[in-house]
Amino acid sequence: MVTAIKKGNLHVVRLVVNGEEHAALVKSNTTLLDLLREEFDYTGTKKGCELGDCGACTVLMDGKTVNSCLVLAVEANGHTVTTIEGLERNGELDRLQEEFINQAAVQCGYCSPGMILSAKALLVRNPHPSEREVREAIGGNLCRCTGYVRIVKAILAAAEANS
């Protein structure tokens, strides 16, 4: 980890978010979640509990899922972060996003960004997961609307499209 430079009570953090260099002055206790939402306006990253219980704040840090409410902004210094806003490339949706739409896996949508990013990390490390593996990968992402049925279908459909 690159240590953040300290300026009085504040720290300078530099990180790459969705392919772009970002820098900010943060407090020691600022979370990555608040940094993303309040400083950089990536509000696609949701806040559901701030305790690591719901997964709504899931982002990818160096390709791995983290609950951004449990990561301090200073810990993200020097790392690469992907939020939901980073999946769409030149107006083209990621296959997972498309399948979430096609399979009607989105109801209120509050869990969707975290859910899609957990699935993204899964498909990167395991392009052809079983249903059980899909369920395990999103086991920390709570959804109160869908019963997960269509979310699991969407992720499996996106994996299918990989082959």
Partner: peptide
């Protein structure tokens, strides 16, 4: 018909703004 949800694209891209997202 099972047409796609009218707001699904906004929701899967993170563009959908919930009250707590507004400034």
């Amino acid at each position: 018909k099972s047409v796609p949800k009218i707001d699904a694209r906004d929701k899967v891209t993170g563009r959908a703004k919930y009250a707590g997202d507004l400034k």
